[in-house]
Design a protein around this nucleic acid. Structure first.
Lengths: 113, 113
DNA sequence: ATCATGCTTAGCCATACGTCTAAGTATGAC
DNA sequence: GTCATACTTAGACGTATGGCTAAGCATGAT
């Protein structure tokens, strides 16, 4: 399904990989250059670069190059849509519980029990 | 990377598809049988079934069969780990801001500005 | 018993993903 | 200029994903 909602799909997809999540966590602590992000993962540089570009395309990190080193930094507000989606789901669910409640009330009033 | 954290990876992966998110939203409103979940998607049944099993393996929905119809229902607490991860990231980020703050304070005290 | 309904299974297909190696390019140090 | 560092690009490779069709197999209705 295409279903224009590319933001969330990109975000969730980016977060679905443990390597990418650990990179992100590391960047939440402090900006870091590519090589230093790569070493703890045990992965080759090109592989890590790919993960980084997935994160960047999702808007979760930003990078900038200074001389020959590229430094990556988290973009904390990028997680906002995820949180918003979660809240929305919760709201829908709770509205449903409320409807159920109302139904039970009504049933009582109408003489059940 | 393997990195035992299969929960979050399964969850995020399940949420990374718009069809699956819309199914989930629908189920947040009310439990629904497979055929009725399928029709609005424009996808064939087997395809939808696959999406459903992804959702189920991630623990996001539960299903039960009664006669020949299978009914799916959301498992709202399944989103908890996602929310927890988000909170954790935020905490790390904020701890960093605090450290920065502290640093600035110290710098001032030591005579800068 | 027959038939329609509702899911299931099996298998195909194209594309995307995660990983690698090998060979660039650009920059800083000597 | 030479060399090491730090990416970057290109391409290969196996697996996973998302979609399909075509047959199954129960179950409910007639």
């Amino acid at each position: 399904m295409a279903k224009h909602d590319p933001d969330l799909s990109l975000l969730f997809h980016a977060l679905a990989d443990p390597t990418r999540r650990s990179i992100l966590t590391r960047l939440a602590e402090t900006p870091t250059r590519v090589t230093d992000l790569a070493s703890p993962t045990g992965l080759r540089l090109p592989t890590v670069m790919r993960h980084l570009s997935v994160l960047e395309e999702a808007g979760l990190i930003s990078t900038s190059k200074d001389g020959r080193t590229r430094t990556c930094a988290m973009v904390p507000e990028a997680l906002e849509p995820v949180r918003a989606w979660l809240d929305e789901q919760r709201a829908i669910w709770e509205a449903r519980l409320d409807r159920l409640d109302a139904f039970v009330m009504m049933a009582r009033k109408d003489g059940y029990r």
